[in-house]
């Protein structure tokens, strides 16, 4: 299973304008300027590809920080 840091790196890759340094475990990702439904879909697809976990739209909504999302992924893996 991938670590939180590896997750963060993959998470950051889904953004084009947001610098990777802005993505930390505590980042409230919904507040990022670039975050959109399209980015959410990219993250869902990345998690499917890299973790073999299917996130739901509601999972994306309920997670506040990047670490929250990582924990959801880990729990489903």
């Amino acid at each position: 299973m991938k670590t939180l840091n590896e997750f963060i790196e993959l998470f950051a890759e889904q953004f084009d304008e947001t610098d990777a340094s802005e993505i930390t475990p505590n980042t409230v990702f919904h507040d990022l300027d670039e975050y959109s439904s399209l980015i959410a879909l990219s993250i869902i697809a990345m998690v499917d590809e890299e973790f073999d976990v299917t996130l739901k739209g509601d999972d994306m909504r309920s997670a506040v920080t990047v670490e929250d999302l990582y924990n959801i992924v880990i729990n489903k893996a």
């Binding site: 439904s37 299917t54 739901k56 909504r61």
Partner: peptide
Amino acid sequence: NEFITEDQ
């Protein structure tokens, strides 16, 4: 489906 919320 799982990709879209009822709000969307």
